[in-house]
Nucleic acid binder design. Structure first.
Length: 436
DNA sequence: GCGATCAGCT
DNA sequence: CACAGCTGATCGC
């Protein structure tokens, strides 16, 4: 295999330059303070947060890319061995602070790696993104689109974050005597918290490390670590559970709000089930419930009852929902397309739904010639593939067998989808034989 | 002992 | 199911 040129959100050896879309952990797997494989490009906000996440990292390796401007890099062509120019543009991805997409052009053609992104066609920011992309692509064809396919399934349709944020504010203001906890991660959902703070004119509690991040992001007066100053607290999602809520309610009436594209606990119930017969109105439930068969109905029922006693699931998502992904693909009409998320809720290759929008039947021969002739088979395969359950209980022999499958995959189409499922995000995107 | 990786959980 | 990501166990150096 010839050496590659460019890796995005992928940190193994063999590339000349590396790009980071944003600082969520599933995109930094393999990065560490001791990493030193080459120049690492990212946005200015990501660069600002970077030392916090990777203290001791050699910052001379970091290069900041301004958004919406072309930057030229001089690299060695993997095919000819000669110097070649690659141009790259970072574009706001509207995901979490610092998140960008990368648009590349060079001898390999034109390609876009979205990273995680949200494409709200109603928002001002997305309109700017739309103009930027169209201007950048102007007379050029997008040869390959690496797409955030997290919610690439028609099951997933949710409102804009502005609408969802209003739902959150409604929930809080309809519980004037309650304490509120909101489950968030170490980065992301800041806009939601700012919105709450502005509309309800209150500070928001965050844990100390999160306050440091808020300060790095330039938010100095809105957040606090003093519990006495506010009844609204943003807490780490991993500490947000039914048990936590039940514990808190022994001290003071408290409700939880979970902003998420996946209302997991809701999904075990039907919209008209008695589970929702509570006197508290559930703003979001009607459009949310999907019916999923239950293995142990009674057991799950209890969990759901406990859940709905205290927790609101609000469809506030930093990923694009299905109709938005569709809009995005329609706009760009790439020649080829590849999902970057393998562990999505209902993984399906984006070509299954959007192949008709692009010229996927005539994949660019400059790129990924191996993909040619596989796309139709892959699309069919994608819907029939069974979820890989029970990996936690699998034996050593089973996991060895799976590893063997991964090796075989490089030349065998039929295993392609099941492998993609397990792969992490990230790609070595310019690699002559395109096997990653 | 340290970092990388994985299992388990939410 | 699992957005993103923590904790704790284990492995290899």
């Amino acid at each position: 295999m010839e050496k590659g040129m460019i890796s995005v959100d992928r940190w193994s050896e063999g590339s000349q330059v590396y790009f980071l879309t944003h600082l969520h952990a599933d995109h930094t797997n393999g990065l560490s303070p001791t990493w030193k494989r080459g120049p690492l490009f990212c946005s200015s906000v990501t660069a600002k947060l970077f030392p916090f996440k990777f203290p001791g990292f050699n910052l001379s390796l970091l290069s900041v890319l301004d958004v919406t401007h072309w930057h030229s890099l001089s690299l060695i062509s993997p095919s000819s061995g000669l110097e070649t120019t690659v141009q790259v543009m970072a574009i706001d991805a509207h995901h979490c602070p610092g998140a960008v997409m990368y648009l590349f052009r060079g001898e390999f053609g034109c390609m876009l790696y979205t990273g995680d992104f949200r494409w709200e066609t109603t928002s001002k920011r997305a309109q700017i993104g739309r103009t930027t992309l169209l201007n950048a692509l102007k007379n050029e064809k997008l040869d390959i689109l690496y797409l955030d396919n997290t919610y690439c399934n028609p099951l997933y349709s949710f409102p804009s974050r502005e609408v969802a944020a209003k739902q959150v504010v409604n929930i809080i203001s309809s519980h004037p005597e309650h304490d509120i906890i909101i489950g968030i991660d170490s980065l992301g959902k800041e806009d939601l918290l700012l919105y709450i703070s502005r509309l309800l004119n209150m500070k928001i509690w965050v844990w100390p490390e999160r306050l440091q991040i808020m300060h790095l992001l330039g938010f100095h007066d809105i957040f606090t670590t003093k519990t006495s100053l506010t009844r609204v607290r943003a807490v780490p999602r991993y500490s947000f559970s039914v048990d936590t809520l039940e514990g808190l309610n022994t001290l003071h009436p408290t409700i939880g709000i979970m902003p998420s594209g996946i209302p997991w606990a809701v999904k075990t119930a039907k919209p008209n089930d008695n589970l929702f017969g509570s006197s508290i109105s559930r703003h979001n439930r009607s459009s949310w419930s999907t019916n999923v068969a239950m293995k142990k109905p009674n057991e799950n029922l209890k969990i759901v009852e406990r859940y709905h006693q205290y927790i609101y699931s609000v469809p506030y998502s930093d990923h694009s929902c299905f109709p938005e992904i569709q809009e995005f693909v329609k706009l760009l009409q790439p020649t080829n397309m590849k999902g970057i998320v393998s562990k999505s809720p209902s993984y399906v290759d984006p070509l299954y739904y959007f192949g008709y929008l692009c010229a996927a039947n005539q994949p660019s021969k400059r790129l990924c010639h191996k993909l040619e002739g596989e796309e139709v088979g892959e699309r069919v395969e994608a819907v029939h593939v069974k979820r890989n359950r029970g990996s936690r209980n699998s034996t050593d022999a089973e996991s060895k067998r799976r590893r063997a499958t991964q090796v075989d995959f490089l030349g065998v189409r039929v295993n392609r989808v099941s492998l993609l499922r397990r792969l992490r995000c990230g790609a070595k995107i310019v690699d002559i034989d395109c096997t990653e």
